[in-house]
Design a protein around this nucleic acid. Structure first.
Length: 113
DNA sequence: AACCTGACGAAGA
DNA sequence: TTCTTCGCCAGGT
């Protein structure tokens, strides 16, 4: 059994469209807990396989890939580029064009009801 | 129950 | 503007 917050986070991530990204903080905020960004990373870390989450579409607030190892970062970058995401630097995404606009948040909220 | 940890983030130096 | 510090939350040990 998971908390409602966790459920919302998972649904949000599952709904990130191809070619778009969201930041940890933003996800936490949309799920109703603005300060739980770290929790989001934990969820991603522990539930990706279970829920088939598009983990690669989650980056930090600055648009950077948040993984630690070079190999993983490179892999995530490849996945994103394949979806058409534009990179400004080696591992920095162009948030302006790739951030997922929150207009559809309502749709997701409804989905959870 | 106490303490640690993390794919974060905003604020202060 | 770059680097450090400190707060956050829930699961793990």
């Amino acid at each position: 059994m998971v908390s409602e917050f966790t459920e919302d986070v998972i649904k949000l991530i599952q709904n990130i469209p191809e070619g778009k990204v969201l930041s940890y903080g933003l996800i936490a905020k949309l799920a109703g807990n603005p300060r739980a960004a770290r929790q989001v990373s934990w969820i991603l870390h522990s539930s990706t396989e279970k829920y088939k989450l598009p983990w690669h579409r989650v980056i930090n607030s600055e648009g950077n890939i948040a993984l630690r190892s070079e190999i993983d970062k490179q892999y995530q970058k490849d996945l994103l580029k394949k979806e058409g995401v534009k990179f400004l630097d080696e591992y920095r995404i162009d948030l302006k064009s790739s951030i997922w606009n929150i207009e559809s948040i309502d749709k997701i909220k409804v989905k959870k009801e």
